[in-house]
Simulated scan of single mutants.
Amino acid sequence: MTTSEPLATGEVRIDASPAEVYRLVSDPTVMVDFAEEVYRVRRRGGAGPATVGARFTGTNRNGWRRWTTTCRVTEAEPGRRFAYEVDTPFKVPISRWEYDLRPDGAGCRVTETSWLRVPRWFVPIAIWITGEPDRAAANTANIATTLGRLKAHVEVRARTSRT
């Protein structure tokens, strides 16, 4: 069920440089503070978070449901793009996530996008595990929440450091 069309996307303008925002979005152990579904991230291996090939494990939740995924960084272009692919612990592909950053005046625009990579036969299993029958709507809402929290964090921190 891999699609070339995004499953969900969202965008926000942040009053900070792409380089500053990239330092956050390229570190999943930091982004966990802003995410809605992911509540714990653990790096695997020795590579830093913003290194192509780096791996990390994400623990997710939806109500009482909990599940773990394994992730591999596929793109890491400082100040521009950070992307990773998500699999089940037993190597079934799930999704791809990407953060694109571009300058916008004195700040930047951040676009977060997800693609579905799951095989059709795994969809009912994924719904049972996550409790989410409408993954597109859930990801759209979660992206909006994540980007809103990221924006608030960066802009509050910037205002605080100026005073």
Rank of each mutant, 00 (worst) to 15 (best):
T2Q: 11
T2C: 04
T3P: 05
S4M: 15
P6K: 04
L7G: 07
T9N: 05
V12H: 13
V12W: 10
S17K: 07
P18Y: 01
P18L: 02
E20R: 13
E20T: 13
Y22N: 02
Y22K: 04
R23G: 03
L24Y: 09
S26Q: 07
M31Y: 06
M31Q: 08
D33P: 05
D33A: 09
D33C: 05
F34G: 07
A35N: 11
E37R: 12
E37T: 13
E37A: 13
Y39R: 10
R42I: 12
R42S: 14
R43E: 11
R44T: 09
R44E: 14
G45K: 04
G45F: 03
G45W: 03
G45D: 01
G46F: 05
A47T: 06
G48V: 05
G48Y: 11
A50K: 07
T51N: 06
V52P: 11
G53P: 07
F56S: 06
T57F: 03
T57I: 12
N60M: 07
N60I: 00
R61A: 05
R61V: 02
R61F: 01
N62I: 03
N62Q: 11
W64P: 15
W64Q: 15
R66E: 04
W67G: 00
W67E: 02
W67K: 00
W67D: 01
T68S: 07
C71S: 14
C71F: 04
T74F: 03
T74E: 06
E75N: 11
P78R: 06
G79L: 06
G79H: 12
R80I: 00
R81M: 04
F82L: 10
F82R: 11
Y84R: 02
E85W: 06
V86K: 12
D87C: 14
T88C: 00
F90K: 08
K91Y: 14
K91H: 14
V92G: 04
V92I: 15
V92T: 15
R96N: 13
E98Q: 12
R102A: 14
D104I: 08
G105E: 06
A106N: 13
A106F: 04
G107C: 08
G107I: 03
R109F: 12
V110F: 12
V110N: 05
T111A: 09
T111K: 02
E112C: 08
E112V: 08
E112N: 13
S114N: 03
S114F: 00
L116S: 15
R117E: 09
P119I: 01
W121R: 12
V123K: 09
P124S: 01
P124K: 04
A126R: 02
W128K: 09
W128M: 07
I129W: 05
I129N: 09
G131F: 02
P133M: 07
P133F: 11
D134L: 09
D134I: 11
N139T: 14
T140N: 02
A141D: 12
N142V: 01
I143G: 02
I143T: 00
T145N: 13
R149E: 14
L150T: 00
K151Y: 14
K151Q: 15
H153D: 08
H153I: 06
H153W: 12
V154T: 10
V154F: 12
V156K: 10
V156D: 13
R159I: 01
R159H: 05
S161P: 00
R162M: 01
